[in-house]
């Protein structure tokens, strides 16, 4: 019950924060100097054409009125009409968000799938070769400029010189996207039983997902390593050893379980940052997701699109943080609220 109360309180706190977020989002996007109507009216537009466009998108209204419209729209789940794409921003999000989600989820899978084993190996073989290797690997990870890594290693090495993996985009040119169910090609293609599409999509996502995940992969490795080291030194592990329980069982069952909490925390936090990092990764790999969408929107000063994107990211970020805290409360009953 206490937990339920806690969740309610946290949700309540989110209201003023989200309100602040809408103000910040609105102010920032409208502070960008320029006029979207002058962008989409075309290179040689007449005054009249520019004026008509301003009118049809409500850009001729004073800013406070535009803000009120924006917020009232939000309440109804309406993010406005994209000035550049001439259709509701929500439709755009439906087309572009799944690609980013898929990339982010794939990155999380890599983070955990590679980070946790590496961390465990590192902790078990503390101060020996595998540990040294892992630590160097993770120092490089947290220090790596993502965009540079993407360009260098992956494009140059895999795509250009070795040709192991396919190029940009989510699918090869002659593949049609699978029927839209979730928008995640890896899942939709399986649902539809198109295995060649699945493998194609998997090969396409591998490089960008790895590139995006590297930083957080390194962080997860570090966290798992340090908490495992802490746990492995505790009394109950020593007792377990004395009782003759196999070492693998000790490591996986007892020690690892206890390092779950920090791992969950860091995964949650990473998810939001991964969404942000996706902007750079998507630009480099031509991944048709939100990152590219928002960069193009900024280029056209498409206010509704920019605001829609930042809001969604903020919403996801805040919700995930909440989720992490709640999970944390479940996993760690010692904490009082």
């Amino acid at each position: 019950m206490r937990i339920l109360q806690y969740i309610l309180r946290r949700l309540f706190y989110m209201i003023p924060v989200l309100f602040g977020v809408t103000i910040l989002v609105f102010v920032i996007s409208h502070a960008i100097p320029g006029d979207p109507a002058k962008m989409i009216a075309g290179p040689k537009a007449s005054r009249q054409a520019i004026e008509n466009i301003r009118k049809s998108h409500g850009l001729d209204q004073p800013l406070p009125i535009q803000y009120i419209r924006f917020v009232t729209g939000l309440v109804k789940g309406d993010l406005g009409v994209s000035i550049r794409n001439h259709r509701p921003v929500t439709h755009d999000l439906k087309d572009f968000l799944p690609a980013t989600l898929e990339l982010t989820l794939a990155s999380i899978v890599i983070c955990l799938g590679v980070g946790i084993p590496l961390g465990i190996i590192s902790a078990v073989h503390r101060n020996r070769l595998p540990d040294h290797f892992t630590r160097v690997f993770s120092v490089f990870g947290v220090s790596m400029p993502v965009f540079w890594l993407g360009l260098m290693l992956l494009l140059l090495l895999f795509y250009r010189n070795l040709g192991w993996l396919p190029g940009s985009g989510r699918l090869d040119i002659d593949f049609s996207p699978p029927v839209h169910v979730t928008g995640l090609y890896l899942i939709d293609s399986l649902l539809d039983g198109q295995f060649d599409t699945f493998f194609n999509a998997a090969a396409h996502i591998l490089l960008p997902a790895f590139c995006l995940s590297y930083v957080y992969l390194a962080i997860v490795t570090r966290i798992v390593r340090s908490s495992m080291i802490e746990v492995l030194g505790q009394d109950f592990i020593i007792t377990a050893r004395a009782n003759g329980i196999a070492e693998t069982a000790i490591v996986l069952k007892h020690a690892f379980k206890n390092s779950l909490i920090p791992t969950v925390t860091i995964t949650g936090l990473s998810f939001g940052e991964l969404l942000g990092g996706a902007i750079l990764t998507e630009t480099i790999f031509g991944w048709p997701g939100m990152g590219k969408y928002v960069v193009d929107s900024v280029n056209y000063l498409d206010f509704p699109a920019i605001m829609g994107f930042t809001l969604i990211v903020a919403l996801v970020y805040v919700s995930i943080n909440l989720l992490v805290d709640v999970l944390y409360a479940f996993l760690n009953p010692r904490i009082q609220y």
Binding site: G113, P117, I121, W164, L165, P166, F199, A203, L206
Partner: peptide, 17 residues
């Protein structure tokens, strides 16, 4: 599991070729 993931990664990259 870790080995399994590595194998899968290589498998996928070969398919890509």
């Amino acid at each position: 599991r870790w080995i399994g993931i590595v194998q899968m990664v290589f498998f996928l990259s070969l398919i890509g070729a």
